[in-house]
């Protein structure tokens, strides 16, 4: 079942197009990652999904219902973890979660149980009676999450939930994302941290200048740029290497010598490793190591956008 479906979603601010014709579908049970540099349009997209911002054009369907026609339904099925921490400094952790959960109509013992459960989930049970002013950045982020999950939404949207926090809190948060997912929640996750997205997301969309420029599983994304491969060969004395002979081998595009390493870029669909090795043996150059470089998401991102994620 599709939890969320975006069709030609567009948002303008004056002449500036922040989100440009974004279309995608997210299935139940997915952890869907949004990757993009600063100002790519991630938060704007998310704000439209959560009903905070009207789209200039396009449709948003949550559980097959158009959200602007079913506002209450949509809002009660979404748990929003905003990029900017939104909690009340004057209320205790417990009161914060209780207040937000109450807005979704929970009352009485059910409310109490859900609040305790949410605090437990983010590991703040022992600090429930404390005020967030005394919390670390990571604890505030965790409280921010607890406020969004107590009403057990179908779709949880996390906008950079791990910005600026210690590794311990980050692991805690990543684990809880996994746990929430195992409990049946569908999750949208945006981040600047490639390794996070690579670790937890089942599907990823790369968004740049408001447009989705690539979308798919990690493997599919990598496959986009794997029409070439890099072979790194460590040698003893590269002085006698004849680059033009090496380049003449079928499929080889580029050869660079970097100290003791000969870096060969080759077409991926030509099986030429044997002939390359043969060349080294024939030339009497001693091979010490052979590495085939697998492409990672960083290279994917770099290739597609011309920038690294944290430019």
């Amino acid at each position: 079942m599709k939890v969320l479906e975006l069709k030609n979603l567009t948002r303008r601010f004056g002449d500036f197009v922040a989100v440009d014709n974004v279309s995608l579908a997210i299935e139940e049970g997915e952890i869907f990652g949004f990757l993009g540099t600063n100002g790519a349009g991630k938060s704007t997209t998310i704000n439209m999904i959560s009903g905070l911002l009207r789209q200039s054009k396009g449709d948003i369907k949550l559980l097959d219902k158009e959200i602007n026609k079913n506002k209450k339904f949509a809002k009660s099925n979404i748990g929003m973890v905003p990029q900017d921490i939104a909690i009340y400094e004057d209320l205790t952790a417990h009161e914060n979660v209780q207040f937000f959960a109450g807005l979704y109509g929970l009352r009485g013992s059910e409310l109490k149980n859900r609040v305790d459960e949410a605090l437990q989930f983010v590991g703040l049970t022992s600090r429930a009676k404390d005020y967030p002013k005394n919390f670390s950045g990571g604890m505030k982020r965790r409280l921010n999450i607890a406020c969004a999950i107590a009403h057990r939404p179908k779709l949880i949207i996390m906008d950079e939930p791990t910005v600026g926090i210690d590794p311990q809190s980050r692991n805690y948060i990543l684990n809880s994302v996994h746990k929430l997912n195992e409990m049946g929640c569908t999750i949208i996750y945006t981040s600047h941290y490639m390794e996070e997205v690579e670790e937890i997301c089942s599907r990823i969309a790369i968004i740049d200048h408001g447009k989705i420029i690539a979308e798919g599983t990690k493997e599919q994304l990598k496959a986009i740029i794997t029409d070439t491969k890099d072979i790194w060969i460590g040698v003893h004395s590269p002085e006698s290497l004849n680059i033009s002979t090496l380049k003449a081998i079928n499929g080889v595009n580029e050869v660079q010598v970097d100290e003791d390493v000969v870096k060969i870029n080759s077409r991926a669909d030509v099986n030429n490793l044997n002939r390359i090795i043969q060349y080294f043996i024939n030339s009497g150059i001693e091979i010490r190591s052979i590495d085939e470089q697998a492409p990672n998401l960083d290279t994917v991102f770099l290739t597609l956008t011309g920038r690294t994620l944290r430019d």
């Binding site: 009903g51 506002k71 905003p82 939104a86 009340y88 400094e89 937000f100 807005l103 406020c147």
Partner: peptide, 14 residues
Amino acid sequence: EGRTYFRLLSTPIN
């Protein structure tokens, strides 16, 4: 300014 207003608008409150 404290962002809680926008957080509230993402709940069933308008």
